[in-house]
Design a protein around this nucleic acid. Structure first.
Lengths: 202, 202
DNA sequence: TCTTGATTTGACCAACTGGTCAAACTCACG
DNA sequence: CGTGAGTTTGACCAGTTGGTCAAATCAAGA
């Protein structure tokens, strides 16, 4: 394994290639379904070489998840108490939908983990995620108190946004099997926009 | 393997026990993550004995999926053109939510399969499911034409119902990590009810 | 150029996995 | 009871998988 000095040019390149390959493989087959050989092949490395950069399959997975969690939660971080409530909410929802479109692998990586009980990120859920959600939920509650948006169960409102937007990435095959040639996101954007406009209008 | 005569008492019992065990294991770990040994142990059988009743791991999985697909789609089948549009829709949604609560394993079984690209049920999606959805979508479109419910993209309306209701089964860990002790379904039912009432009101 | 640490690899291993098979056991029924 | 079909199992196998290791190769600075 490389020493803990500053990473060399080669280290940077190979670690990045491995994480990129791992994202492909883990998101498509889940943790158990992915093989180290497969990831190595996709990264253009031999298996022992890959294991020179990461201690184990589990280590790759962990680094991927924790590295992407921030990206994944960024849109919610951006929800701004001082902005216009309805516009803030719609912007958040649009950003989430856009992420489903542009980062479907990341969405499925988390989906795979969650459906199987999140054995590897349970802590992040009940700590980091819960804290962030709680924080933003107080903003929502304030907006509701002020009559700026309709009064709803704020947690379930959050769940509905996640469910609706990530559905297009996680269950992409199903969506496409039913829509045929139609581009899912073309119809999805105006649909969710209308939905939340109606729902949130007091 | 048992001959194709009428199944004996023991055959009935064991095949049922295997399918029940397989539902537990496949829904919790996905196809690749599940092992035949695990299923056998959970069914109270030895591995060779289990393989006396089913030809292979794949055969168990296939029989499970095809056997449960009907159950899974039943609520949509029940959507009745001649009923009151708003009540029919709300009844469908409630039934779907109830299934998330009462049959979470079934939901996760399909979720696992779908997130990973549905390699084993792709045909059922683009045939059986698509046909059923198309049929029901024409009903929705009629209702919209008659001004009975709001005009929306009917396919995305379907997707939203699936996403919202199944979210509670598929991502149960996440929901519970955030809600803490609160029973998810207690808040979910009035929430989705309100949501679709608002959304579908013309 | 030479040296030293970084990188790469072929060969290997133990554990696990899906599946087989012949032999043993059990059950229902005449 | 006896008997033949139905049921169960221990032992086994070949392929896969995550991971190791010593030896070989490469790269960059003195």
């Amino acid at each position: 394994m490389p020493k803990d000095r500053a990473p060399t040019r080669i280290q940077k390149k190979n670690r990045a290639a491995i994480l990129e390959a791992a994202l492909n493989v883990f998101s498509a087959h889940g943790f158990r379904g992915a093989t180290v050989d497969q990831i190595a092949a996709e990264a253009g490395l031999s298996k022992p070489n890959l294991l020179y950069y990461f201690a184990s399959k589990e280590a790759i997975h962990t680094e991927l998840l924790s590295g992407l969690l921030e990206t994944w939660l960024a849109p919610l971080h951006d929800l701004d108490e001082t902005g216009d409530p309805m516009e803030e909410m719609l912007a958040y929802i649009r950003r989430k939908l856009q992420m489903s479109q542009e980062l479907p692998r990341e969405s499925r990586l988390f989906a795979n983990e969650l459906v199987q009980g999140a054995p590897r990120i349970h802590d992040a859920l009940s700590n980091d995620l819960k804290q962030l959600v709680d924080e933003k939920v107080t903003i929502l509650t304030n907006w509701m108190d002020q009559g700026k948006i309709a009064r709803l169960h704020p947690y379930h409102l959050m769940f509905s946004i996640w469910a609706l937007t990530q559905h297009y990435a996680d269950f992409d095959v199903q969506v496409r099997a039913i829509l045929g040639d139609e581009n899912p996101f073309e119809g999805a954007e105006p649909f969710v926009d209308t939905l939340y406009r109606k729902l949130l209008t007091p």
